[in-house]
Amino acid sequence: MSGDLKGRVGLVTGASRNIGRAIAVSLAERGADVVVHVARDLSAGAETVAAVNALGARAVLVSGDLGDPATARRVVDEAIAAFAQLDIVINNAAIRPEAPFREITYEAWRDVMATCLDSVFLVSQAALGALKASDQAAIVNIGGMTAHTGALHRAHVVAAKAGVVGLSKAMAHDLAADGITVNCVVPGLIDTERHAAAGGAEPKHRGSRTNLLGRRGSPSEVAEAVAYLVGSGARYVTGETLHVNGGAYLS
């Protein structure tokens, strides 16, 4: 890998496993130091830190509920304090519970909105001061394919991820004058480990989904797209939504 991100610092939220961990590793492979955020799973977060360290990059672990404004600010402050700078923010934190529309409680609705959408707003806003000081500042928000297709039993998740796409475009407008690029990467049909916090069992809608390539993607393939968008070669790219789904929309 190139040293394209040497001397840069990236914060990756929701980096305990799967796509978040792959992104943290990808940044480290390119020379960046990484702030690894987890909500609660400190053990899994420590594994991500170890994976980053194994590549010769520095890493620190931060934790907390990013849907809470005070906690989001604290996490960002800790990230900046760790390395005295912040150049890259990857908003990946998410939960994906499933329930029929009629059974979704308002509490469940708010939990999803707070984790998937509010956190993007709160973390990005808290990081603005540090990002403005960087000459290669980039924010990448991780969306979801169901925001574009809909999905059974995921009204709250679909709504939140659709909001991430719209927020990314709005942020691109507002932050362009500060030299901060903002883009959205949308994974689809990715082979990930399903754990309880993310919704547990295999999503119901996946059984009927196919793509042109006839396989599921890997977290590392999503991470490659993210790495491009935060690298020096993508400084003229902002406000875009990049789909990584093996041609699912064409199948």
Rank of each mutant, 00 (worst) to 15 (best):
L229N: 00
V222L: 06
F121H: 15
M171G: 01
K204H: 13
A159I: 00
A248M: 15
A82T: 00
R194P: 08
A160F: 06
A70H: 05
L242F: 13
A81K: 11
A196F: 03
G10F: 12
N245C: 15
K132L: 03
E224G: 14
I104P: 01
T241Y: 01
A32F: 11
L131N: 13
A15L: 04
I95H: 00
S134D: 11
A248E: 13
H37M: 04
R102G: 06
Y228I: 05
G150R: 05
A39I: 07
I80G: 11
S43V: 14
V25N: 11
P69T: 01
A159L: 02
L213C: 00
D41G: 13
D77E: 15
T149G: 12
V237H: 10
S168Q: 02
A94L: 09
M113E: 07
A93F: 08
V123I: 10
L213S: 02
N91T: 10
A82K: 04
T181W: 07
H195M: 12
E78W: 11
G3H: 10
A54C: 01
I88F: 06
G163I: 07
A201N: 10
G233L: 12
P187D: 09
L212C: 10
M1E: 13
V52P: 00
L250G: 12
Q85M: 01
K132G: 11
S168A: 12
A197K: 01
P219G: 05
D118R: 05
H153W: 15
S232K: 08
A15D: 02
V185W: 10
G239C: 00
T48C: 10
S218I: 12
V75D: 06
L229K: 00
A57M: 02
V60E: 10
L213G: 00
A99Q: 14
D191E: 15
A50K: 15
A176G: 13
R17V: 07
A57G: 12
A72N: 00
A159D: 04
I190C: 02
T13R: 01
E103L: 14
Y249A: 15
D68H: 09
Y236D: 11
I90D: 02
L175A: 08
H205K: 02
V25R: 10
D4K: 14
L131Y: 09
